[in-house]
Amino acid sequence: MGVSKTKQPLRKRGGKARSEERRFAFLFVMPALLLVVVFRIVPLIWGFVLSLTDARGVTEGAFIGFDNYAELARDPAFHDSMANTILLIATLPIWIMVPMLLAILIHQGVPGGKFYRAVYFFPATLSSVIVGSIFNVLLRNDGQLNQFLELFGIGAIDWLGNSNTALLSLIAVQLWATFGMSLLIFLAGLSTVPSDMIEAAKLEGASMLQTFWHVIIPTLRPIIEFVAVVTTIGVLTNMFGLIYVLTAGGPGTSTTLPEFLIWIELGRMNRPGYAAAISMVLFVLMAGIAYAQVRIMSRNVNV
């Protein structure tokens, strides 16, 4: 929408002037480029090199080729962490739908919308250690949640101590703690949906649900895509604090995610080389997922 006829700037100019212009432009891009290279690319390469060594602690490791990766392929802890990751990613639609639906409701002007917005966002300002401590208490065997469930005659469940529920509890807590941010992003996105488009749909007899599905959600697509990518990266890289405080990866490996495994291998086992190999796998995984998401979402959007 919006601007209609943007005139294509004249591209063809003298070759010399162009290359000069390019050099000049490069000068402006330089500082940012330098930062990216120094703080992103170099560590990435360094990490990859590290993953090809058997470095232990402070000693510089010897080059061992892809042995670390071969070991990964046989490591049951790593397998479990991957299985947990898949389960985590499978819950992604919830991570997107919950804030989106709540944002739509707030945007529609439910009474007290501003209050809800603040309340939903509040946990996002808490450190994961605090969130973890709160839920440690709430989810304990004699915690408030179990006391509450008992009112309905449901027996106590050891939410964090049972390998069937630990990961799901962890996911629920992380969702609670972070969906406020996505909600705000959706609210910002919704405020850009032109109101007369929605009015036009109303005039044409579209029901509320049809308007959501056929008008609002397609318009929000770029936002959904953004939230999906950011959330994926978030759950794969930002759950360490919560795991550490709530379950320490257990019981067994039931809440061990690759990120946590990296820390175990690095901090406890003192194997930076092996940890670096896991990091590389995690990196490739995230890049792959992000790429796939962007591709899927942008396939039929050319707004």
């Binding site: 488009m197 009015e199 044409e204 008008v215 318009t219 959007v301």
Partner: peptide
Amino acid sequence: AQRGIAMVFQSYALYPHMTVADNMSFGLRM
């Protein structure tokens, strides 16, 4: 929708993700 009216907006209010045909048929399709 029940008033027997149709409105044309200053901003056109077209649905950007739909083709012209789909824009025009939106009400009937719904």
